[in-house]
């Protein structure tokens, strides 16, 4: 009897050990699998035109005179726009160590929104955040708006609202200068860094040569890993990669875009008047040359040698 019990225990122990080690191996070598399970994909939502946002009003209220009852009025009464940003994405949202200010293309777009609400572009309180925190911080009301290289996707649209597209980015890949890879297709089995919760993860998983995704919190963490030789490449939106390449002269772009990443400002569901207002401001920026000026200031020549036309807005009513 005793021997029988001991045998059963031994079998149980072996089974447990096998189960544990199996789980560990899956988590360690296949982070993409874990991520794929984390985002429920089966009931694939349908969004129609995913980039279509709410149509702006014919005329915007004057700065400092937001209509009573609107969310803009709440912001105006508070005295500052609370904005979720990145502070380490060079060119789009980064902390300038020389003057301690957060700057970049995304930040200047937010300045335009603050200007439209208050008549003062600087009435902004920044909340730096990682990419993975963006949706939750919008949903729990920590921030009014997120301007942080935020790709509009159908999944995300189920949880938050987006402005019209204000920037067209696309996934590319950054490798060391001496790499012979010509694009993402040549990086099969190589470690490619990107961030937690980014839209690049499914795109990387879809590459037939199967690069190995390595997920870190921030792109600067990816650059540290890249410079230490822990990863072979960094893959994400070209807009972000341009800022990384600027910090490391031994990094180079290879290959074409392997995805489209339309950027929108992230907003909460529940006050559509604010989305319409923001779209109105973006329309003004496209029309009056502000958008082109921002592009020239931040992205020529790091990303492109010429200023392209601003992305056209698509609307639904």
């Amino acid at each position: 009897m005793r021997r029988w019990t001991a045998g059963l225990l031994a079998v149980l122990a072996v089974a447990l050990l096998a189960g544990c080690s199996g789980a560990t191996r899956t988590a360690a070598t296949a982070p993409q699998a874990a991520v794929a399970q984390a985002t429920p994909s089966p009931p694939a939502p349908t969004c129609g035109n995913v980039v279509a946002s709410l149509r702006p009003p014919a005329a915007l209220p004057a700065p400092g005179q937001m209509p009573a009852g609107s969310y803009m009025r709440t912001i105006q009464d508070r005295g500052r726009l609370v904005a979720g940003v990145s502070q380490d994405t060079l060119l789009f949202g980064f902390l300038d160590p020389f003057d301690g200010q957060i700057k970049g293309f995304d930040i200047d777009v937010l300045h335009q929104i603050a200007q439209a609400i208050f008549g003062d572009p600087n009435k902004i309180e920044y909340r730096a955040m990682t990419g993975a925190e963006r949706i939750s911080k919008i949903r729990d009301g920590s921030v009014d708006i997120v301007g942080r290289t935020f790709t509009i996707t159908c999944d995300r649209r189920q949880q938050i609202d987006f402005s019209s597209v204000y920037f067209d980015a696309g996934d590319r890949v950054l490798v060391r200068r001496d790499s012979t890879a010509k694009g993402i297709q040549d990086l099969g089995g190589k470690k490619v860094c990107t961030t937690n919760g980014s839209t690049t993860i499914p795109h990387l998983n879809a590459v037939p040569s199967k690069p190995v995704p390595v997920l870190l919190a921030d792109f600067t963490d990816c650059l540290v890993a890249f410079q230490n030789g822990e990863v072979d490449a960094i893959a994400t939106d070209d807009a972000i990669l341009a800022g990384l390449a600027k910090q490391d002269p031994y990094a180079k772009f290879v290959g074409d875009r392997f995805s489209d990443e339309p950027y929108g400002l992230g907003l909460a569901l529940g006050h559509p008047e604010f989305t319409r207002f923001v779209n109105g401001v973006l329309d003004q920026m496209r029309a009056n040359g502000t958008w082109a000026n921002l592009y020239r200031t931040w992205l020529v020549p790091s990303l492109s040698n010429a200023v392209p036309a601003p992305p056209a807005a698509a609307y639904k009513d």
Binding site: Q87, D88, T89, L90, F94, L95, D96, P97, F98, D218, T220, D221, L223, V224, Q227, G243, L244, K246, Q247, D248
Partner: peptide, 20 residues
């Protein structure tokens, strides 16, 4: 030291080195 060197050039990757 990598954090400092990058920070002195205004590169945000300095923060990454410091975090690490």
């Amino acid at each position: 030291e990598s954090a400092r060197a990058n920070n002195r050039q205004g590169f945000p990757v300095g923060a990454g080195y410091l975090r690490r």
